[in-house]
């Protein structure tokens, strides 16, 4: 088992299956294909995400899981098929893209905070310039989310002065300041030291408990068991298996999944 799963996340006593999932569709992906040059990265992806779902996407490296969630806010362009996010279809229309992006928050592996701005400025930038929120209100919202991720005292520091875990929590708060309806996490804990992983996962669990729609590419199987209502396993650009966490971990169906699980959980 990886180090972080040793953290006792299940001790929070929440049952992911009890958390509410609505019937409303948040993301609809149909027959989506993507190529990098001639390399076929994503093949026939079909997927529906309902509002309030917490989905963990896992798979070996190069399986296309990051590419998949990056297609959802069009950091990557798909060539075939359809992606509809919150009722807006992603095409080359820039207006639609900006609309989707301002509704979908994204957290990156390497945080990608803006190093030339203070933490507070990082948080208020998009609300002020994209949402046209008055500055005072944006600052208030930013402080609210900084308190929520438990680092309000860092507001006037620069990202370079914070630890990795703190930076990632700031990155989460930065996304939340845009009041997104969907959050995408692209390996949010992979660049962190083990002792910092827990603080970030705690923040994410809290978010899940509040009913945020979340898609999370991660290898933190403890996190998957604690909050996910669905685990998707990808290999070679295709969805190989998806199931609820209990079934997925205890009773995997495909040989590929069994092999993967034995590799990441087997020592």
């Amino acid at each position: 088992m990886s180090e972080a799963t040793a953290l006792d996340l299940t001790a929070r006593q929440i049952d992911p299956s009890q958390m509410k999932v609505s019937d409303e569709v948040a993301i609809q992906i149909t027959q989506m294909n993507k190529w990098y040059g001639t390399f076929h990265v994503l093949r026939d992806i079909n997927m529906t995400v309902n509002r309030g779902e917490r989905i963990v996407i896992c798979g070996p490296s190069g399986s296309g899981k990051s590419t998949l969630i990056r297609c959802i806010n069009r950091l990557e362009e798909h060539q075939q098929g359809q992606i509809i996010v919150d009722g807006t279809e992603l095409t080359s229309d820039l207006k639609n893209i900006d609309k989707v992006r301002s509704e979908v928050g994204m957290v990156f592996q390497h945080f990608n905070l803006f190093p030339h701005l203070t933490i507070l400025e990082n948080l208020t930038l998009a609300p002020i310039w994209v949402r046209k929120t008055p500055k005072a209100e944006a600052v208030e919202v930013a402080m609210h989310y900084l308190r929520k991720v438990k680092i309000p005292e860092q507001a006037n520091k620069y990202p370079g002065q914070l630890s990795g875990g703190q930076q990632q929590r700031v990155a989460i708060a930065r996304s939340l300041c845009m009041k997104p309806r969907i959050m995408l996490f692209d390996e949010p804990t992979s660049a962190l030291d083990p002792e910092m992983i827990k603080e970030v996962l705690d923040t994410m669990i809290e978010l899940a408990e509040e009913g945020m729609t979340m898609l999370c590419v991660t290898h933190e199987m403890g996190f998957a068991q604690a909050v996910a209502n669905r685990v998707i396993f990808m290999d070679q650009g295709q969805i190989v298996e998806q199931n609820n966490p209990k079934e997925f971990f205890n009773n995997p169906q495909s040989d590929r999944t069994k092999l993967f699980l034995s590799q990441i959980l087997g020592h």
């Binding site: 806010n73 979908v104 990156f108 845009m178």
Partner: peptide
């Protein structure tokens, strides 16, 4: 990417 993801044009 971070700027794009926040919806900045």
């Amino acid at each position: 990417e971070a700027a794009d993801a926040l919806g900045l044009d």
